[in-house]
Amino acid sequence: MAIRLGGSCLNSAPSVDLPPIREDEPMARHASWRAGGRTRYYSEAHSAIQALALAAWAMERNLPLLWVGRGTNLLVRDAGYPGLLVSHRAQAWRLEDHGDSALLHVEAGSPMAGLARRITRMGWAGLVWAEGLPGSVGGAVVGNAGCYGGDVATSLVSAELLLGGQVVTWPVERFGFGYRMSVLKRGGEAERRGGEASERGEEGESGRGGDVDSGSGEEAESGGAEAHPASRIPH
């Protein structure tokens, strides 16, 4: 069954068991640098529904909320973080094959490099540039990650964000992408206490996003993205 989140409100999110929330958690355990301060609360979201539930939990307690990927290049200050820090681990994806083109739906926690390699092995050329890119999809959207002549801005179609308690969909034009920059990273119209959520449908081919342990140090409001893997690789 496909879960439709667009337009939903945190206060009306379906009831779900919260994932474990740990207090006074050393972030050195979760950062690639193996260093950093503590966070007052820490949890991991492995699905869109868990992400919504954690965001609601933080809002009910008026806690600051920070979303990260898998800890690559993440360093928490020695003074620590005073709210709830959530590592977004949801990494489901599905591919709509339209013959000579395709549309990829992917959750924010998917490791970018592993996903790109998987899509390339399937014969699609659009994410070849990202095969060595560290970090997760959510962080890549926030920072317009790129290398080898490609970047998120040239591949993204739209992404789902959680802003002001509402899940909204932004087209690529709304992000104001520049070199390693977006309105999310600049803190423009995006609410910095926002969360992230995404959607997974059962139609099409689905799988897990890769074989690398990578993430993003950015505060990622994006939770799900649609991208064009472009044309098939010629044989």
Rank of each mutant, 00 (worst) to 15 (best):
M1N: 12
M1V: 12
A2W: 08
I3E: 05
I3G: 00
R4P: 01
G6H: 12
G7A: 09
S8P: 00
L10F: 12
N11I: 07
V16W: 12
L18C: 10
L18W: 09
R22T: 12
E23H: 09
E25C: 04
E25W: 09
P26A: 05
A28V: 07
H30Y: 15
A31R: 03
A31Y: 00
A31M: 02
S32V: 02
W33E: 03
R34E: 12
A35V: 06
R38H: 14
T39E: 01
R40L: 11
R40I: 01
Y41W: 15
Y42T: 03
Y42S: 01
H46R: 15
S47M: 08
A48G: 15
A48L: 04
I49K: 07
I49N: 11
I49C: 05
A51Q: 03
L52I: 02
A53G: 10
L54M: 03
A55S: 13
A55Y: 00
W57Y: 12
W57D: 05
W57S: 04
L63M: 14
L63T: 01
P64R: 05
L66I: 03
L66M: 09
W67S: 01
G69I: 02
G69D: 06
G71V: 06
N73V: 06
L74A: 08
G80A: 04
Y81G: 00
L85F: 00
V86T: 01
H88Y: 12
A92T: 12
L95G: 11
E96P: 00
H98I: 00
H98E: 07
D100M: 12
V106K: 06
G109T: 11
P111H: 10
L115P: 07
L115H: 09
I119E: 04
R121N: 13
A125Y: 01
L127W: 08
V137Q: 05
G139N: 04
G139H: 05
A140N: 08
V142A: 15
G143H: 12
A145V: 14
C147N: 13
G149N: 08
G149V: 11
D151Q: 13
V152T: 08
L161A: 04
L163T: 10
G164F: 09
G165A: 10
G165L: 05
Q166V: 11
V167T: 14
T169I: 11
W170I: 02
W170E: 01
R174P: 00
R174F: 03
F175W: 10
F175N: 02
Y179W: 10
R180K: 14
S182V: 07
K185M: 07
K185Y: 06
G187S: 04
A190R: 01
A190I: 14
R193S: 10
G194T: 04
G195E: 02
G195Y: 01
A197S: 13
S198K: 00
E199Y: 08
E199Q: 14
R200F: 15
G201F: 15
G201K: 09
G209D: 14
D211T: 11
D211R: 13
D213P: 00
S214F: 02
G215Y: 02
S216A: 15
G217W: 08
E218M: 09
E219S: 13
A220D: 02
S222Y: 03
G223Q: 04
G223N: 05
A225F: 03
A225S: 15
A225E: 01
P229N: 08
P229A: 05
R232S: 06
